[in-house]
């Protein structure tokens, strides 16, 4: 299941790709997310099971700290930034949108 999630979530992210053009920030974000999910879930499964003496890291037992900070917080540190860097604002300005509306309208007229 951990492997399935590590494949599914980044793959879903890649559905945001536009057919034309190389989007390094999107590909980088998806790759980073896949690596993060594999490493964190893998470590949580592989490390020794819980007992009262598990070391505490940043206020939480080690394995749970990995999950909470690794999966629950770390993606926030790079996904929104990657999205902002990938975002193509130029194609969404008023002029560009007007041109898009006209082209789409023409295409509908041709149908």
């Amino acid at each position: 299941m951990a492997v399935a999630i590590a494949i599914t979530m980044p793959s879903a992210l890649l559905m945001g790709a536009r057919p034309s053009g190389w989007q390094p920030w999107l590909v980088g974000a998806a790759t980073g997310l896949a690596v993060l999910l594999v490493v964190v879930f893998g470590a949580a499964l592989a490390l020794p099971a819980a007992d009262g003496s598990e070391p505490i890291i940043a206020g939480l037992p080690r394995r749970l700290a990995l999950i909470i900070y690794g999966v629950g917080l770390a993606p926030f540190a790079f996904l929104p930034i990657a999205f902002a860097r990938d975002f193509d604002s130029r194609s969404l300005g008023p002029e560009a949108l007007r041109a898009l509306r006209e082209r789409c309208s023409a295409l509908r007229g041709e149908r």
């Binding site: 979530m9 879903a12 992210l13 559905m15 945001g16 999107l26 974000a29 997310l33 999950i67 909470i68 999966v71 629950g72 917080l73 770390a74 993606p75 926030f76 996904l79 929104p80 990657a82 999205f83 990938d86 969404l92 949108l97 898009l100 509306r101 789409c104 309208s105």
Partner: peptide, 30 residues
């Protein structure tokens, strides 16, 4: 129980990447 909310750090970007632009543009042209 936290696995219900753990994806929250991912889902905002996921939803925006996949849907935001396309849905807003559909609103624009249609």
């Amino acid at each position: 129980a936290l696995y219900i909310i753990l994806p929250a750090a991912i889902t905002g970007a996921l939803s925006a990447w996949v849907l935001a632009r396309r849905m807003r543009l559909l609103a624009e042209v249609r």
